[in-house]
Design a protein around this nucleic acid. Structure first.
Lengths: 197, 197
DNA sequence: ACCTGAACACCGTTCAAGT
DNA sequence: ACCTGAACACCGTTCAAGT
């Protein structure tokens, strides 16, 4: 049972750090660079080779989060059939599901502190996630379910509504059951409000 | 120009801590208990007599924030006249204005981490702020501007929509001008969606 | 190129002691 | 009752040095 000495080189420390960080985040723990290094088995200064500072690691986590959020949204819409309200609801549920299941990660993604000087890749990942919802309204206008107008504006209102309800749920102002109910109510009202008249 | 020695007793350390904390928050700084104590001129352990730990100070700030938010909402609605859409817009602008002007404080208020075991007074302050929006929909139902149904559900949807757009603005996904424009669009759609048919 | 280990300047929290 | 000062166990960041 001798402790096998760790090799000097760690296989892929960058990836190991990101994975360990996501695990810690999912477990509701605080992110400490030193603690991550400890769990992986490298010195506390080793992460510096891969992330110049803590914010760089947080940005990488956020970027990955936006990619996964975009995937989840596209996946949900891909399975949602043709009815506009059904597609809106699928979008809302997918967004809120991600938000509730990855509350700490979502907070990082929207932290905003690291936005003025954020990496271009992070900005792009966020835009790509948002585009998944944008497409929904372009479709809706084509099928006559949605009034004319800048789809980006309309999309942002819908995105904001769902984001807001998810944020309230993550703030414990709503329980999960109430969230699902309110999402349905919000979607119903949004669909009515967006219909051409 | 001799430095006048500080008296042993500080007049009202609790209040001084809260005020200094709000100032720091408004300036975009990080909150450090030790730094607050330093700025006020007491030892780093002195705050402990008034706040058992850092979270207790954060909770007190959040509670004060909810009270001021409620005041701002009630004030805006008091000045808003009778038209339902105008009142909705006044509410939305007042909420978003507070959110943008006190971004760091809002984050504290909705942190949620400190909610499961939060003080009852904090919960009540949050509820009271929310009630300011609730009243709007009870009115709307009385005047026939809003469909029947649980006003708390309807209120939460509206609250969530405005909260979400403000959160996106604070995440730098929207600039201030776009926020105001989107609030108006969201309110217009909400009002249409809520109308009895 | 990648990592270590010591060092620096911070934290929040605790506690015996002072007045 | 209210505050101090030293102590403890942490942080993130830096840097000379090792391989």
């Amino acid at each position: 049972m001798a402790v096998t000495p760790r090799p000097y080189h760690h296989g892929n420390l960058r990836l190991a750090l990101l994975e360990q960080a996501e695990r810690t985040l999912a477990d509701g723990g605080e992110l400490s660079l030193r603690e991550l290094a400890r769990q992986i088995g490298v010195s506390h200064a080793a992460p510096r080779r891969h992330f110049p500072d803590k914010q760089a690691l947080l940005d990488a986590l956020a970027e990955d989060g936006f990619e996964r959020l975009g995937d989840a949204l596209r996946d949900a819409l891909g399975k949602a059939g043709d009815d506009f309200e059904a597609r809106m609801l699928a979008f809302a549920r997918a967004y809120a599901g991600f938000a509730v299941d990855h509350a700490a990660l979502l907070e990082l993604m929207f932290a905003g502190k690291h936005r003025p000087d954020a990496a271009e890749s992070l900005r792009q990942a966020a835009d790509r996630a948002f585009e998944a919802s944008l497409a929904l309204f372009v479709e809706g206008q084509a099928t006559g379910d949605v009034v004319a107008g800048d789809p980006e504006r309309i999309g942002m209102v819908a995105f904001g509504t769902v984001h807001g309800l998810a944020a309230l749920a993550n703030s414990q102002m709503l329980d999960r059951a109430a969230l699902d109910d309110l999402l349905a109510a919000a979607v119903e009202r949004l669909v009515l409000g967006l219909r051409p008249r």
